[in-house]
Design a protein around this nucleic acid. Structure first.
Lengths: 216, 216
DNA sequence: GTCTATACTCTGATAGAC
DNA sequence: GTCTATCAGAGTATAGAC
C-alpha cells in the first residue's frame, strides 16, 4: 500500500514542511473544520479545546498532537482564510466595463459571505478585537490592493464612466453590506422569523442599490 | 453622619431596587464605564475581572461588592444599551417627508456609531456569538419596531413617494453601513493610515448613496 | 466599603502507557 | 497515533479582617 517513500531528505535546509501522511493531512483537516465552527461562533478566547475536540470527534491531547497549541490552530485557520480573502477584489478587471466590474465584485463578496459565513465571522471577530493577529496583513497586502483599486475607481469617475463617489467608502460599503448578512445573520434570522436564509433577497437589493449609485 | 434611615420598608414586597447611596451610584458608574471599555474590546469571555478592576481603579473583590458577578455587569451594560438602541428608529416620523426622514434616520445611526463606538462593538460581539443574551429583545421589541417601520416604508413606496426597494433590506443596509465604521474601525484605520477618524467622509458618501437609492 | 488571602473551577498543555 | 491521568496557571468568586 504505502509505496516505500524516500526519506524525503528535506532538501531545502530548514525542515519547514514535515512530510505528512494521509492520516495526518486528514486529521488536521478534520480539526481545522471543527475549529472553524467553534472559533467563528465563540471567538478565540471564548472557544475551548474541549469544544473543538468534541466537535472533531477526537480527544483533547490528540488535538495537540497535530497542532502545537490552540493559538496554532487559530493561526492556521486565519492564514488559510486570508489567502483567499482578497481574491474577489483581485479579480476586478481594469479593462472591463466599470459598472459591470463593480457589480460583479459585490456579487462575488456576497456569494462568499453566503458560502462561507463562518469564515466571515472568524474575520469579523478578529477585527472587532482590534485585529491583533492580522495587522500586518491588513497594513500591507490588503492596503496595497485597496489602494490600487481605489485609484482605478477614481480614474473611472474622473473619466465620467461612473458617478463621482469616494472610492474608499465605496469599497467599505461593499464590505459592510455583504458581510453583514453573514456576521449579523443571527439578528436577521430573528427579525425575519421566516425560514429564509439571511441572504435571501440581498442580491436583488444590492444590485439595485449599486446600479443607482454608480450610474453617472 | 448617616442620618438614621428608616428601615426602608421596601413597600412593594420584593426588594427590587435597594436604595443606593451617592458613593454606590458613583462606583457602579465607574465600574460600568470600565467594563464597557474592556467588554467591547475583548468580548464577554475574553474580558477578565482583573482588566475591569484595573481599568476602574478598584480591587477585584470590590467590583463584586457592587455587582453580583461578571455576568451581572455585562447584563447591566447590555440592558442600558438596548434601552437607547431603538431610539433613532423610533424617532422616524410617519408624517414627515419620506426621503428626509430616512436620511435623518441614517444620520442618527451614523452619529451614534461615531459617538458610541464601544456600545456598537458590545452589541456586535453579542450578535456575532448568536445573540444568546438578547434574543428576547430582538424577537420582540426590535422585531416589532422594524416590522412597523418596514410597513411604513412599503406604504411610501406604494404611494410612489420613494423608489421601490425591499424595506427590510433597506433597514439592514443602514445598520450595516453605519455600524461598520464603529465595528470595523481597526481595519479602516489601518487601510487609511492617515490620522483621520474612521467615520471621516462617511456622512457625505451615505447621504449621496441613499438619496440616489430612494429618489423615485 | 475596601482590602488581603484564599477556595475552587476551568482550561491549556504534558507525561506516559498502550 | 491515541488514550487516561494529571499538572500548572488563569480566572471567578468568597471569607473575613479592618
Amino acid at each position: 500500500m504505502t509505496a516505500p517513500r524516500k526519506p524525503t531528505a528535506q532538501k531545502h535546509g530548514t525542515a519547514k514542511k514535515p512530510a505528512r501522511s494521509r492520516i495526518q493531512t486528514r486529521n488536521r483537516q478534520i480539526i481545522l473544520e471543527a475549529a472553524l465552527e467553534v472559533f467563528s461562533n465563540n471567538g478565540f478566547r471564548g472557544a475551548t479545546l474541549d469544544q473543538i475536540a468534541v466537535q472533531a470527534g477526537l480527544s483533547k491531547p490528540n488535538l495537540l498532537y497535530y497542532f502545537d497549541s490552540k493559538e496554532a490552530i487559530h493561526r492556521d485557520l486565519l492564514t488559510r482564510l486570508l489567502d483567499t480573502w482578497l481574491d474577489p477584489l483581485r479579480m476586478l478587471d481594469p479593462r472591463g466595463d466599470p459598472q459591470t466590474e463593480i457589480l460583479a465584485y459585490m456579487r462575488r463578496k456576497l456569494d462568499m459571505s453566503r458560502a462561507y459565513p463562518r469564515e466571515s465571522r472568524l474575520f469579523a471577530n478578529e477585527i472587532l478585537q482590534g485585529a491583533p493577529r492580522i495587522e500586518t496583513f491588513i497594513r500591507t497586502e490588503l492596503r496595497l490592493l485597496v489602494d490600487e483599486k481605489a485609484c482605478l475607481f477614481q480614474a473611472w469617475a474622473d473619466a465620467g464612466r461612473i458617478a463621482r463617489v469616494d472610492p474608499y467608502h465605496l469599497i467599505f460599503s461593499i464590505w459592510a453590506m455583504t458581510q453583514h448578512y453573514a456576521d449579523f445573520a443571527a439578528q436577521i434570522d430573528m427579525i425575519r422569523d421566516d425560514g429564509q436564509e439571511p441572504h435571501a433577497g440581498a442580491e436583488a437589493f444590492l444590485e439595485h442599490l449599486y446600479t443607482r449609485l454608480l450610474t453617472p
